[in-house]
């Protein structure tokens, strides 16, 4: 009842559906297959994270070196804590490095900019589980406008 042709075509159909799935997963969503433990975790405390999201990139001079893996709220201090999953390849950041929340373009997505600090004999490198203390929160447009209005009105 079943001809070879039908079997071949159905096989091709399923194959192309599966290919489309793989293309979407790896090419479009860019899911990275984690090969073992190739990342290390850092933490940072911000007063305001603005539009930062899980999976937002962490960049050094525009190069992606890691991603935000979780965002939680410190229950005692009531400020957000961001968990970063950093690429093992980039593990030479001194403890004095600072993090700031930046925006790509005027209306673009927000990302974390990592500015490596100075290096010295006494200063250790950041390792798994460390916390970056020097953080700059997101610029919130309403706050800026508020400050601007306040400063202009106080001059009068």
């Amino acid at each position: 009842m079943l001809t070879r042709k039908i079997e071949v075509l159905v096989g091709l159909f399923l194959l192309s559906g599966f290919t489309a799935f793989l293309v979407l997963v790896f090419n479009v969503a860019n899911v990275e297959v984690k090969t073992g433990n190739s990342s290390y975790t850092l933490y940072a405390k911000f007063s305001n994270i603005g539009g930062l999201k899980v999976r937002s990139p962490v960049k050094v001079g525009g190069v992606v070196v890691g991603r935000v893996s979780a965002i939680t709220l410190d229950t005692s201090e009531l400020v957000p804590i961001v968990e970063l999953s950093m690429d093992k390849e980039f593990n030479q950041f001194p403890e004095t490095s600072s993090l700031s929340i930046l925006t790509s373009g005027l209306l673009g997505e927000q990302f974390l900019g990592l500015t490596p600090g100075f290096m010295d004999e006494d200063i250790a490198m950041l390792v798994d589980g460390d916390r970056i203390d020097d953080t700059h929160s997101a610029l919130v447009l309403e706050d800026l406008i508020g400050q601007f209005l306040y400063s202009t009105s106080s001059k009068d």
């Binding site: 159909f13 399923l14 192309s16 559906g17 599966f18 290919t19 489309a20 799935f21 293309v23 979407l24 479009v28």
Partner: peptide
Amino acid sequence: VSLPMLALIFTAVGI
């Protein structure tokens, strides 16, 4: 089985 397959193909081709 077919419709999800077709939807994936549609989306990939559309992109």
